[in-house]
């Protein structure tokens, strides 16, 4: 099995999401955020950086995360309302207010679309499993692959294999925070499919 490490920020939502047995089995290691700058990442095929991490501490690890990408590593970055790390190559993020009540209106639609339904990710999750709310829009660099988008606007999840020798997945979906907070059931369906997809298909 390919080795995926996750960064653990010490919060209760992270504690639950990353230690839940059905998710922990896909993780070969947890790296406590303050230890990230000095961590040896070469033993891992991928690094998952969850949403809602202390920005100052994450910025201290920028050099080692970028070096890992330069060595061909895979990095997955989530954002839950906070600006994704500005030092990520190719990143363009735009704030959008969060609408968490959109589904109360009958027939309402959050506006998520996928342009390539044959992508391996959609063998593991359906678009519905990614639909709770989103925290901002991404404008991916040219050549990146957008998997989940907001209709006519921008990306919510993309994979960039052009900006670095490695693979960078960026998303403004925040499933770890919500699953870890016992809130928003779609986030559990998302993680049930997403983590095995990362380990089996992406890495």
């Amino acid at each position: 099995m390919k080795k995926l490490a996750a960064v653990y920020g010490g919060s209760a939502p992270h504690h639950r999401a990353l230690n839940e047995p059905k998710y922990r089995r896909w993780l070969s290691g947890l790296i406590y955020l303050p230890d990230l700058p000095g961590a040896d990442l070469d033993g891992f095929d991928g690094l998952l950086i969850p949403e809602r991490l202390h920005r100052g501490k994450l910025d201290e690890a920028a050099g080692s995360v970028l070096a890992y990408l330069d060595r061909g590593g895979t990095v997955l970055v989530f954002s839950g309302g906070e600006h994704p790390p500005v030092w990520l190559p190719g990143l363009k993020w735009e704030h959008r207010p969060t609408n968490f009540w959109w589904w109360l209106e009958p027939g309402a639609d959050l506006g998520l679309v996928c342009h390539n339904p044959d992508h391996s990710l959609f063998g593991y999750i359906e678009l519905d499993d990614a639909t709770w709310h989103y925290h901002g829009l991404l404008h991916p660099p040219e050549g990146a692959e957008t998997l989940i988008a907001l209709r006519d606007e921008g990306a919510l999840l993309y994979i960039d294999r052009v900006s670095t020798p490695g693979t960078l997945l960026v998303t403004t979906l925040d499933p770890l925070y919500h699953f870890g907070s016992y809130f928003m059931p779609a986030t559990e369906r998302f993680l049930d499919g997403f983590l095995p997809w990362v380990v089996r298909e992406l890495l």
Partner: peptide, 8 residues
Amino acid sequence: TGNVDQEL
């Protein structure tokens, strides 16, 4: 608040 690092 709830996002605090409880290891700390």
